[in-house]
Structure formats: C-alpha cells, structure tokens
Amino acid sequence: MDELELLKKDWDKSSTNYPNLNNEQLYKLINKKSSSIVKWIFIISLLEFSAWTLISFLFDGAESLEKMKSYNVEHIFYPLTIFGYLVLFVFFYLFYKNYKSISATDNTKMLMEQILKTRKTVKHYVIYNLLFVYISIVLAVYIELTNNPETQSMLTSIESEGANNIYILYLTIIGFILLAMAVVTVILLGIYFLIYGLLLKRLKSNYKDLKALEKAI
C-alpha cells in the first residue's frame, strides 16, 4: 500500500483527536502580546539607565566631582547620587516583577490588573525622574550660590550697591530655575512619550480588548 495512503487513513481517523481551545483561551492567545510589551518596558528601562550612567561618566562626571570636592559638599552630593541609584534599582525590580507576573498570568482579570499596575509603575517612574531632576537643579544652584567664591564676591558687591539689586538678582535666579525645569520637563516628557508612551498605548488597547472579552463572556 502507498505510504501516503496509509498516512491519509490515519490522518482522517485522528482528525477528531485535536484539542479544542475555547473562546477565552483563544482570546488570551492573541492578547498575550502584553507580556512582550512589558518585557520591552523592562529592557528599555535598563538601557535607559545604562545610557544615563554612560553620559554622566563621559561628560562632566569627573569634573563636577572635583568641583563638589572643592566646595566640601560631598555630604549632599554622595547621598543624593546613591539615593538616585537605589531608587532606580527599585524601579528595575518593579519592572521585572511586572514582566514576570504578566507572563505567568492565566486569568483575564488578573492580566487586566497587571496591565494597570504596569502602567502605574511607568507613570511613577517618569514622575520620580522629573522630581529628581528638579531637586538636582535647585540643589546645584543653591550650592553654586553658597560655595562658589566667585559668586560669593559677586553677591557682596551687588549687595553693597543697593538692596533692590539683590532682590532682582534672586528673582532672575528663580526665573532661571523655573525655565530650566520647564525645558527639562519638555525634553524628558518628550523622550518618555516616545519610548514608553507608545508601548503604554499598545498595553492600553490590549486592556480594552480584554475588558470587552470580560463583557462578552
């Protein structure tokens, strides 16, 4: 007997043996994209961290460290740096945890909750980064004003010329800080929107689909 004929017989015979996935299982299959999106969020956060570290080392890392040493403000500078890195690590851990739990989630409701949680973590991450930059700007200006001998002598000379001048100077400085904050906010939010925003958008559409599924079943 022809081999293929033999095969065909068996093929027809076993055509009822296949597993039958129900609608919900199939829905989940096509919505599993969430897991890989969250994985990308995790990977991108790692890349971003490396990029920032590299940039700070390449550019003014050593120089500003020297400057800080000459100002005797290591007690502010070091804790702040360490704190910054610690918080970043906490965020990596959270991103990783999100990824792990999303890829292990079986039930639709849990998956939805996890998606919401991931979105929240990313939001917190962006807010934290902005706050950290704001605090750094304020601190840097403060340190510059109180510790740089050049600015100090300039301040005293301006003060001797009249009390009004010094207020104007301070107002200018505050204006400068606000401007710097605004610029940083626009740049950072722009970057984050490009990287995370698009991923979050896709997560959101997955979430919507899952929600529709909840209703349908």
Binding site: L21, Q25, K28, K32, S35, S36, S103, A104, T105
Partner: peptide
C-alpha cells in the same frame, strides 16, 4: 516566546 500559562 513560549506561553507557559497556556496549558491544554
């Protein structure tokens, strides 16, 4: 990428 939760 394998879906581990997809057990049938």
């Amino acid at each position: 990428q394998r879906i581990e939760s997809m057990e049938y």
